[in-house]
């Protein structure tokens, strides 16, 4: 080629966008004069354009999922933290449940001993509270973790928690008779009790 050696070098500088104004002018001038170099330059640019024209291909659809499946197991603590962050309502509900059951169970456990309301004329035999024949109990009786046998009369309510009540005849108790066996019934009984107390307080205040 009769062209100056610099011509091709200038072409590459031009394609790298690093050509100086001066060399650009020289290249331009040379290309106008020399057909070989013009063709050469054209072929270079064509090759680049063709390479760039290869349509951009995208990764397969499940690509990310597959990468994630191949990652080593992540820290459990972080996993749990994210779960809590993503489910605030469930987290709150779970917290509530845990705290609630904690309270309920501790109260329940405190209540596991045999006890009954102190009323005169009650007799106790082997964990059974007996209202003897011919006697009358004025007021309510509550028996925890034991049975009650009513042979006499009770002027009030009878409540048995975790136990059975045996009655000589139904008319002997003037108030309500209630048996509470399970944890939830017991819970309900406690709630009712609290409700009643609140109402009583209100009533008392109104009376005043």
């Amino acid at each position: 080629m009769k062209c100056p050696n610099e011509a091709i070098e200038y072409m590459h500088e031009y394609l790298d966008e690093e050509i100086s104004e001066e060399n650009k002018e020289l290249l331009k001038k040379h290309l106008q004069e020399c057909e070989d170099c013009r063709n050469y330059f054209h072929e270079l640019k064509k090759a680049i354009a063709l390479v760039q024209s290869t349509s951009h291909i995208a990764a397969p659809a499940d690509f990310t999922a597959r990468v994630m499946a191949n990652l080593p197991e992540e820290n459990k603590k972080v996993k749990a933290k994210r779960w809590f962050r993503n489910h605030p309502f469930l987290t709150a509900a779970a917290m509530f449940f845990v705290l609630m059951s904690g309270t309920v169970l501790s109260t329940w456990n405190q209540d596991q001993q045999f006890s009954f309301s102190k009323q005169p004329s009650l007799v106790v035999e082997n964990g059974t509270v007996i209202v003897p024949k011919g006697k009358t109990v004025e007021g309510d009786i509550v028996v925890r973790n034991g049975d009650i046998k009513v042979e006499g009369r009770v002027k009030g309510n009878v409540t048995v928690i975790n136990g059975k009540q045996y009655m000589a005849s139904a008319g002997n108790v003037t108030g309500e008779i209630e048996e509470v066996d399970q944890l939830f019934e017991w819970l309900w009984y406690n709630i009712k009790g609290t409700g009643k107390e609140v109402l009583d307080i209100n009533e008392n205040e109104e009376k005043k």
Binding site: H56, I57, A58, A59, P60, F63, T64, V67, M68, L71, E74, N75, K77, V78, R82
Partner: peptide, 18 residues
């Protein structure tokens, strides 16, 4: 230690790397 954050990084670069 958040793996899901890496999922987003993969989404951003998967086509280029592929």
């Amino acid at each position: 230690g958040d793996q899901n954050a890496f999922g987003e990084v993969v989404e951003l670069y998967k086509d280029k790397v592929f």
